[in-house]
Amino acid sequence: MNRFAYATPATLAEAAANTELVSEAMVTLAEGAVLKAGGIDLLDLLKSELLAPSLVVSLRALPGLDAITQDPAGNLVIGAMATLAAVADHPLVRAAYPALAEAIAGSASPELRNVATLGGNLLQRPHCWYFRSPAYHCLRKGGGHCFAIRGESQYHAIFDNQACAIVHPSTPATVLVALGAEVELHDAEGAARRLALEDFFIGPADDLQRENALRPREVLTAIHLPGRAPGSRMAHRRQGEKAGFDWPLADVAVVLTLDPDGTCGKASVVLGAAAPVPRRARSAEQVLQGRRIDAAVAADAARAALHGATPLSRNDYKLALFETLVRRAILAAAG
């Protein structure tokens, strides 16, 4: 780890003013300032010397950024500095968004969840082993080549993998996108904007070296979840090589609204660990909408979810895995 100065600003403007490099650890330039939330991913990048900032700006002294509150309209606002443990254990989260609580409780380990924050989790850099290894100067680090596409691709993307085959590292993000979450972003001048989380994440076609739309001098401050719609149901299913403390090989979030007669109204099906961003499986959603959900409809939707997949040489096993998880998640949500 290089030597760096460490600042603890007391206002968002101070924090934002000094972060030419944003996110918990966005951008791999050799100098500059980075924002630090819980610091789990940041320390990993510093130890690998993928980042060498001159200044680390910690958000921990900012008041109120870890609050979890419900607004009068019934929306849940989760401060970006709320730890994963605090979010997963929160009564409002457990009651209204059980799939989110379950996905977070299945992320990382108890020791890491006590420190890692939801904001930092959403802003992790990719965990592609070529990206994380200082030995590979890959496309995402400014090199000329994605080593995964023709290399060891077993944990890589099966969609949108023509240029860079990372998968998005956040499991909570899979559920948050399905729930229609928004992120709140503040800049150094005090201006705030809200963006759908689905649009916040950007793929290799938009930018090969960034994974989100955060601008320089902008800080992610909160995650907004819409209140539960009447008749809404949700489920999250994941599969890893181990039952706990492992990156998912595949994870799936399904959020449905069912009319009183059992017909599916809105449907949101999102695949994690499938693509560079959490991927809406819109063809699966179309199969579900307007139908009464039974095993056959769920199986049709699950097949549709994999339309257009382009698996690499080491990861075509993910097709069957996702098809099974999508089917099970739909049936679990509808049941």
Binding site: F4, Y6, A13, G190
Partner: peptide, 25 residues
């Protein structure tokens, strides 16, 4: 934020209490 707080001489004021990169208590 005023112009003066973004100037280099006032970097400390702009980013809050700062420690390091050397040792700190």
């Amino acid at each position: 934020m005023t112009e003066t707080t973004t100037a280099g001489a006032s970097a400390e004021a702009a980013r809050g209490p700062t420690a390091g990169p050397g040792t700190t208590t």
